[in-house]
Amino acid sequence: MAETVEQTIEKLRQNYPGEILETKQVGLHEVFVTVPATYIVAFCKFLIEQGWWHLTTITGQDLGESIQLLYHFNGDEPPCITAVTEIATDDPKIASITPDVPAATMYEREINDLLGVVFEGHPRPGRLVLPDDWPEGVYPLRLDEIQKRAERDSENG
C-alpha cells in the first residue's frame, strides 16, 4: 500500500484549495470526503488530476430531506476517494460532471431516472433504464415511492 488513509486525507486537505466539510474512512481503503454541492465539478476535476483517474460510479440515495450523491473514484493503487455531496430533495439540481468526466454519462442518466436529480449541462439527457410508459415525476428510489411499494406488498401479503 502506497500511503495510509490518514496520509491521503492530509494530502487532500493541503492540496485542495476549496472547502472540505468532512472526511471519514470507510472499509479498508475508502475515503469519503464531503464537499459542498456547488464545488463538485471542481473537486472531481481535482481528484482526476491527483491520480484518481477512474470514476467507478455515482451513487444516489434519498435521505429524506436531502439527496446524497456519492462520486466514487479510484486510481492505480489504494486508497480510493469518494466525493460526497448533498442537495435538497425539493429542488434536486446539480451541475453535470459529464463534460469534464465523460465516464459519468450513464451514471448521471440513471440517477436522473431513479431519483429525479437534474444534472444541468448533461450533453445527452434522456431516459435510460425506466420503461417508455413510466409516468413523469415518479422516481422509484425516492423514499415515498419505496414506502408506497412496501404498503402495496403488505396488502398483497
Binding site: T56, T57, H72, P102, A103, T105, M106, Y107, E110
Partner: peptide, 9 residues
C-alpha cells in the same frame, strides 16, 4: 455498478 455499464461509453 456492473462492468458492462461502465464499458458502454
Amino acid at each position: 455498478r456492473t462492468p458492462s455499464l461502465a464499458n458502454w461509453p
